[in-house]
Design a protein around this nucleic acid. Structure first.
Lengths: 141, 141
DNA sequence: ATCGTTCCTATTGAACAGGTAGGGAATATC
DNA sequence: GATATTCCCTACCTGTTCAATAGGAACGAT
């Protein structure tokens, strides 16, 4: 996410991995591995050579947080290695799949509605800001 | 979750680990490890001896899915080993913490609202059922 | 030709998930 | 009191993932 946000802030200019790494205080080589994931997912384009770097392939207001997370972490919600709708349970646990689907749906409601542009500017959608509004949301539990 | 649901369905009778394991098709020893977590969290009570077993310490309609998940998996939403509100980011990534808190809040909205009793009966709260209602919710993405 | 880049492959170390194994401690029933 | 049942404790194993490290080949602007 930090890599994607760095690129979003400079869009459409290219940014080198080194610059990005320095800005976020992380190893360049580690960042390169993440950027490779983003590139393979088609979110980012690499430009080789001096004055090269990386840039987003779409404007920051058209890339969702969800697509970034899926690019690097795979499917959002996994249950014992399976996707929620692939799970099946016996007897008293029969309705568990519905629960997992509901959880995934709730997560999607956040990450698929927030764009990189919104996150850089801090202007999150009203529905999302509502989730962070109650003081309870910031407390452990 | 399967262990908790098995106990909820038989509440307030005790159920042996072996019975529970057979019903859900999982190794008894593995199940015992899970039940130990639930016991240490105060959700479950063990009764030793012949005719012993495990039982919930509260009625199934007073135990939430969230408390079960936290008992065995620890905090619901972790970001690089930290809780969402403990994260801090530099520069363009500054607003990331709000995103993580929103995600956790969305998850809590499901797991802290659903009880074991509801899950056994399949009667999930309206707000939760709404999340599973759209056909999209059951599709990968 | 040279320098700054991306890009590829391989490796490490620590932590975790899921599962295995043996045996001690408690208790109901006979 | 013996016995069977069951919880409970400690330790171990194996594979996978996460985060990071390392070296160097391919590429492109100057």
């Amino acid at each position: 996410m930090r890599a994607a946000l760095g690129l979003a802030a400079s869009y459409p200019a290219t940014v080198s991995a080194q610059t990005l790494a320095d800005a976020q205080g992380m190893p360049r080589k580690f960042l390169e591995a993440v950027l490779a994931d983003l590139r393979r997912a088609g979110l980012v384009q690499g430009v080789r050579g001096a004055e090269g770097g990386y840039l987003l392939r779409q404007p920051p207001d058209q890339i969702t947080v969800g697509s970034v997370l899926r690019a690097v972490d795979g499917p959002l919600a996994g249950v014992r290695g399976m996707r929620p709708e692939e799970t099946a349970y016996e007897g008293t646990a029969a309705h568990l799949s519905e629960l997992w689907v509901a959880v995934r749906s709730a997560v999607r409601g956040v990450v698929d509605e927030v764009t990189l542009a919104q996150l850089v500017s801090g202007r999150l959608p009203a529905r999302v800001r509502k989730l962070t509004a109650t003081p309870d949301a910031w407390l452990p539990r």
